[in-house]
Design a protein around this nucleic acid. Structure first.
Length: 658
RNA sequence: GCUGGCGUAGCUCAGUUGGUAGAGCAAUUGAUUUGUAAUCAAUAGGUCGUGGGUUCAAGUCCCUCCGCCAGCUCCA
């Protein structure tokens, strides 16, 4: 038998002492022989193979890459098989259930079911029952076998079982003479491409984590099925650790601590997606906004201030009226005015009017406009969430007009500005970049020709590549007028949202007749870049709360210092100290005047995540010093006032993150 | 918009099979005058998200609407 090259999770294995394997040995046994504890899948340059495959089944034997649970590839297979086990368990408990699909996801897996024919209102109570059936299936260690059928046979099998969704899938995916693979584990069969683990016993422990609704094929026009989410690990400890970590992450949920730390609240009578920023939240937003407006000014932006609503006419020119009307709040006047107005969902058509106010020449370009812009979008009622998805929000909005030659530099400038903001807030490692493209198969969602799109996407790709940006690509995520670079972050529930976006627009200048005269006197359309520097303030606030678990960096802290007099006689002295510190540039200070012991006041300040606590007792008065306590570093001891001022002011001015 | 869960004092929660609301923290007042994560006591504060229905009687059962949460769809 020929020698084989073996890799584990992509790393080459030292082959010096390897035995030669027989053709009939299965991959699982080979993996075990190599000392891999939790083998999941074998990949060659061409294919993926189930571990039940025999070595002889493989054509490309020279290059076997074993993936175990420690690799993303391995986890994917592990979780996919776990989904099948879940489906098998549900099928055993509810024989009439209809199966949807059950893929692995980023962490864990899900399976969609239709319980319609089961005469049961499935609820979270049932998950325990299903979990215990899952344990049975794992201990039965059922072998997982792959089998191929032609389309007709596959349809017959699934028709017998009234698996309407599987029938739908087979019809959709398989051509008339096509073959389809089934994975069988005892009484359970599923149409599936695989690959899968060798047997159900290869799975350690499964926990079911959620039960929700989900549309069949992800289409809101289709029936809603019941989705059960789960996660699995080779051992119980890892599973428990994962679940604990999940719970810990939820403790940072901005929607929870943002409310309890009094950054924001919501009021039933005001309505969904319309939060109240309380003084603490409003202060952080104000600080961010001042900072951004100054920064943009330094970067050559011209400030604009445009109306919050307009006649429908404006949106008809921009294309919003036909592409976006469902998401706009319309204002109808009832005094006989036939005009319909609408609150603005975007700033672009308004800010363009600034450009249009004069004839522009190439000498004017690039032009960079910025505005702290409040927008209104009629999101569907189920969409709103905390501070991240709102019906009214305020964004650090900007539009740039430039010549084709300037596009690269201007785009890069926007990217650099965004990156600078992210670094400053300590978020640069928490974001990913997404190149959002149009969806060819959904042309009606976009304006412009196919060539326009292909060209502008190519331009953007070139720029992104020249910046050595590590990005993913997403079809169908573009704006209706052009491709986007989205800077994404993940919240405590592992859900992704866009923080910052930079978009190239090759359409709207034409619609608005925005032109410039080039050096030869010719009228041309400029490129327009739509961008934010820090995204919208509410969402950024939410991200900051989650990132810092409510403990804002000193420069953004709504309360920077709290003075804690040891007894009531020291309140006046503390008030004077407060004024004194304010004069040195530490603006946000409170004195705790409660008639309580010092421990109580420290506890309160700690829970409110106040950066610095100054304990004032007789000792401090006598020595003219202050006792400084930091929220994370604890008691810093006695310090002169000037030393503390230096420390604090330095942190504020340098926007230190700690 | 859809699926499921939830909605009792400012906050976190109790409230048995329907019999006209409880606790802790916070607040206020008093005592204490306190040295690095909760001093003690008293007082005040809800008509149980909204509107309707069933009942002799509803926080507790039914319906409507509003809001909150998770997920889906959509999206900055």
């Amino acid at each position: 038998m020929a020698k084989i090259n073996i890799k584990i999770n992509g790393k080459p294995l030292d082959l010096s002492n390897l035995p030669e394997f027989e053709e009939h040995t299965n991959l699982h046994d080979i993996a075990r022989h190599l000392g891999i504890t939790n083998p999941c899948v074998v990949k060659t340059t061409k294919n993926s193979y189930d571990l039940s495959h025999k070595l002889g089944d493989i054509d490309e034997k020279d290059d076997l890459n074993f993936f175990d649970f420690d690799s993303p590839e391995g986890k994917h297979v592990y979780w996919h098989t776990s989904a099948h086990v879940l489906a098998q368990a549900v099928k055993r408990l509810f024989p009439e259930v209809k199966l949807g699909i059950g893929p692995a996801i980023e962490s864990g897996f899900y399976y969609d079911f239709d319980f319609n024919d089961c005469n049961v209102q499935i609820s979270k109570e049932h998950l325990k029952e299903i979990e215990s059936e899952i344990s049975n299936i794992i201990s039965e260690n059922i072998e997982i076998k792959k089998e191929f059928f032609d389309k007709k046979r596959a349809l017959d099998i699934m028709s017998d079982r009234k698996e309407i969704y599987k029938i739908d899938l087979i019809n959709e995916k398989i051509g008339e003479n096509g073959q389809i693979s089934f994975y069988n584990q005892k009484e359970y069969n599923d149409v599936c491409l695989g690959p899968h683990l060798k047997s159900t016993g290869c799975i350690g422990n499964i926990a079911l984590t959620n039960l929700t609704g989900a549309y069949w094929k992800g289409d809101a026009k289709n029936k809603m099925l019941t989705r059960i989410y789960g996660i699995s690990f080779p051992n119980q400890t890892d599973l428990e650790n994962y679940l604990t970590k999940l719970e810990e992450a939820k403790k940072r949920d901005h929607n929870k601590i943002g409310r309890s730390l009094k950054y924001f609240t919501t009021v039933d009578s005001i309505g969904q997606g319309l939060p109240i920023l309380l003084p603490k939240g409003a202060k952080v937003v104000q600080l961010l906004q001042r900072f951004i407006e100054d920064l943009e000014e330094k970067n050559g932006y011209l400030l604009t201030k445009t109306p919050y609503f307009s006649k429908s006419e404006l949106y008809k020119i921009s294309g919003h009226w036909s592409h976006y009307q469902d998401s706009m709040f319309l204002l109808k006047t009832e005094d006989g005015d036939s005009e319909t107005y609408a609150l603005r969902p975007m700033t672009c058509p308004f800010q363009f009017q600034v450009y249009l106010n004069e004839d522009r020449s190439y000498r004017d370009l690039p032009m960079r406009f910025n505005e702290t812009s409040t927008l209104f979008r009629k999101e569907q009622s189920g969409e709103m969430h905390g501070l991240t998805r709102l019906r009214q929000f305020t964004i650090s909005e900007g539009h740039l007009a430039c010549t084709p030659e300037q596009l690269d530099e201007e785009f890069t400038g926007c990217l650099n500005l965004a990156n600078y903001c992210l670094e400053l807030l300590g978020l640069e490692r928490d974001v990913t970049f997404r190149f959002s493209k149009w969806d060819k198969n959904n042309k009606e969602k976009y304006i412009g020709s196919e060539k326009d799109w292909e060209d502008s996407q190519e331009i953007m790709r070139k720029i992104l590549d020249s910046q050595n940006l590590n990005y993913t690509e997403a079809d169908g995520e573009a704006a209706f007028y052009g491709p986007k670079l989205d800077i994404q972050f993940t919240n405590v529930y592992n859900k992704e949202d866009t923080l910052i976006t930079i978009q190239i627009d090759f359409q709207l200048a034409r619609r608005f007749e925005m032109k410039y005269t080039d050096a030869s006197g010719e009228k041309k359309y400029p490129f327009v870049i739509h961008r934010t520097s820090l995204g919208c303030y509410e969402r950024t606030l939410a991200l900051l709360i989650e990132k810092y678990a409510g403990a804002m960096p000193m420069w953004l802290a709504p309360e920077q210092v709290r003075i804690l007099p040891v007894n009531e006689n020291l309140i006046n002295y503390s008030q004077e100290l407060k004024t004194n510190l304010e004069n040195f540039g530490i603006k946000r200070i409170k004195v705790d005047t409660h008639n309580e012991k010092i421990g109580y006041k420290i506890r309160a300040a700690q829970e409110e995540k106040i950066p610095y606590m100054l304990v004032i007792g007789n000792k401090e008065v006598e020595t003219s010093k202050i006792s400084v306590r930091h929220r994370t570093n604890g008691d810093l001891g006695l310090m002169s006032l000037s030393d503390f001022v230096k420390l604090a002011v330095d942190e504020i001015e340098n926007k230190t993150i700690n």
